[in-house]
Simulated scan of single mutants.
Amino acid sequence: MKTTTRFDAAIHKLYTAFHSNQLNPICCKQCAVGNILDNTDSWKHVSDHHGSLNLNYVGQVHQSMGRKFNGYTPIELLQIEKAFLEACGLETPLHHRHKKPSNSTDKNVLFQGLSAVITLLCKFDNIPNVMDYKRVFKSSEMAITKK
């Protein structure tokens, strides 16, 4: 399967973060976007609320200029972050009163978030969803029936 450079880089960073316990939905530097952007939190300045899809003035300027951060536009970064947070069980935009899981760094919780992000990244780059396990079984069934 042919993928894009930005997809490969993002997947590598997210995989590494997941397996080295550096993925945390509450931390702007260790969330999905924070890891994709090399553990920086500068991306949070494109929106006024963590987990929102609304670009603020700074975000709108970057978006209109065609600016990309490690290959992703500001609106794509917000979509990635929202997908990650919500799949991890957090209510968006983040607020101390909003719903959140009892253990946001539980591997099962993080895997759900990671799966949602990878699905979205595939969609962005028109790549078949690598997280769709049904395709693996379908390929195996087709190979068995051809024998």
Results as ranks from 00 to 15, higher is better:
residue 18 F to T: 02
residue 30 Q to G: 01
residue 110 L to W: 00
residue 121 L to Y: 00
residue 105 T to Y: 02
residue 70 N to R: 09
residue 86 E to R: 10
residue 103 N to K: 15
residue 127 I to P: 04
residue 19 H to W: 13
residue 130 V to W: 01
residue 127 I to N: 06
residue 70 N to C: 06
residue 85 L to E: 04
residue 82 K to E: 11
residue 125 D to G: 00
residue 52 S to N: 10
residue 6 R to Y: 06
residue 102 S to R: 14
residue 49 H to V: 08
residue 107 K to L: 09
residue 78 L to Q: 03
residue 83 A to W: 02
residue 35 N to C: 11
residue 140 S to A: 15
residue 51 G to T: 05
residue 122 C to I: 06
residue 54 N to T: 15
residue 109 V to M: 03
residue 26 I to R: 08
residue 70 N to K: 12
residue 138 K to C: 04
residue 9 A to W: 08
residue 43 W to Y: 07
residue 75 I to D: 12
residue 29 K to P: 00
residue 132 D to S: 13
residue 11 I to F: 10
residue 124 F to L: 07
residue 67 R to F: 08
residue 107 K to G: 02
residue 135 R to C: 06
residue 15 Y to R: 11
residue 61 V to W: 09
residue 72 Y to I: 03
residue 104 S to E: 12
residue 39 N to S: 02
residue 97 R to W: 14
residue 134 K to D: 08
residue 99 K to S: 05
residue 73 T to R: 12
residue 69 F to N: 08
residue 18 F to D: 00
residue 3 T to I: 11
residue 18 F to E: 01
residue 97 R to A: 14
residue 95 H to R: 10
residue 130 V to F: 01
residue 109 V to H: 01
residue 98 H to G: 10
residue 125 D to Y: 02
residue 115 S to N: 14
residue 80 I to R: 00
residue 71 G to A: 09
residue 143 A to D: 09
residue 93 P to H: 07
residue 55 L to T: 03
residue 22 Q to K: 12
residue 53 L to K: 11
residue 7 F to R: 01
residue 147 K to I: 11
residue 147 K to H: 14
residue 119 T to D: 07
